[in-house]
Design a protein around this nucleic acid. Structure first.
Lengths: 198, 198
DNA sequence: AAGTTGTACGAACGATCGTACAATTAGTTT
DNA sequence: AAACTAATTGTACGATCGTTCGTACAACTT
């Protein structure tokens, strides 16, 4: 079982394309992402980029999945190593804030950008984005639900927590104001304290 | 002092253009908004639309201002008729939720869309959007600050309240799920109750 | 060595983008 | 009625968009 050097090379350029694609899309959106620009910046031919995906929609879909993989590795996986309930939930919150604050993507959270861009549209790209959002929400909810002595609705708690994160991201990017993260951290901490003391 | 019928007619088509522009932009964003599409949908010439603004950037700026005026009339002005502090803040919250839920713009809140679209860019459009967001935030903060017996930081309270609103909007649009508004209303109510009882 | 497969390329396609400018229409002023 | 002005139009432009095609070349199979 030998690896085909041609395929290997193809997959590598493909990874390079997608890594650049998520960066561009986090700033300009998935529509602002153009095949020509991608080709120019990577010093490859436009048709070469195109051939890797077959259509712009497919490029967008693969870009979303690539961003999700990065997000998952950086935020979800480390948190899953921690014990269920409180510690894991705290890790998810802080992991998300670090992921956004550290500008894993130059435009801040990739999904905040593309969610707002595609939420009112139709098609496979929107559906995929919605699906990733559902997974993230479910994860936060399910983790919150396993906090010992939690009396309130974990879905409601998860909604409020995620709201803090999302607003911190957009505020920090829009106003170049890192204080938004301070607010979000304070909000998360006091909200969690309230949820367990009640 | 007579009104010029030509100018009057011009301003009317201009209003029609902008009304359609905010609707399109709330779904497709300010970049997805194109002069050609605008002309086609309104059954006027492309050059006619262009002449009203002189450049695409100017069209975008005027579109943002037009959306702000609609938002202000619908959410801010009615709330300002109420007494300062609690009642006014509640009116702002409920007014915002009704504005979003009632789909004043087909894509949900206009500003949620364009904020995420332009937050990581540069230029006059982004600056204008950032300025409107600052005004909205300041209004909520200042109104919260005038609640009698408020012990906590009104900026922090405003941050959390606005976060609920924003998330409700994007969730309801992305998942076609009206329950997001129920969550936001519950969050706003309990958060306000907490702020005054503390 | 010959044949096949996969990646990447260059050129060209029709469509649409924003923009420019001269011609036309409609309303106002003299 | 003539002169003027503002709104609107038609035509054209260069650039870029996504997409298609034939081709070149390296790598694998037989």
């Amino acid at each position: 079982m030998k690896v085909d050097g041609r395929v290997e090379r193809g997959e590598q350029t493909r990874r390079q394309i997608l890594r650049r694609a998520v960066d561009i899309a986090s700033v300009e959106g998935l529509e602002g992402l153009s095949i020509g620009r991608l080709a120019t910046e990577l010093h490859v031919s436009k048709s070469g980029v195109f051939a890797h995906f077959g259509s712009k929609e497919e490029l967008q879909l693969k870009t979303v999945s690539a961003a999700a993989a990065i997000f998952s590795d950086l935020v979800v996986t480390p948190a899953l190593a921690l014990p269920d309930g409180g510690p894991r939930l705290t890790a998810l919150m802080e992991g998300w804030l670090a992921y956004s604050e550290g500008r894993t993507f130059p435009g801040g959270c990739f999904f905040s950008t593309v969610q707002a861009e595609f939420d009112a549209r139709e098609g496979r790209v929107r559906d995929l984005i919605a699906d990733y959002d559902r997974r993230w929400t479910s994860l936060v909810s399910a983790t919150a639900a396993r906090i010992p002595g939690l009396t309130e609705d974990p879905d409601q708690l998860a909604f409020e927590l995620v709201a803090y994160l999302e607003l911190a991201n957009v505020r920090s990017v829009l106003h170049a104001d890192p204080a938004a993260y301070t607010r979000a951290r304070a909000a998360v901490a006091s909200r969690l304290a309230l949820a367990v003391s009640a």
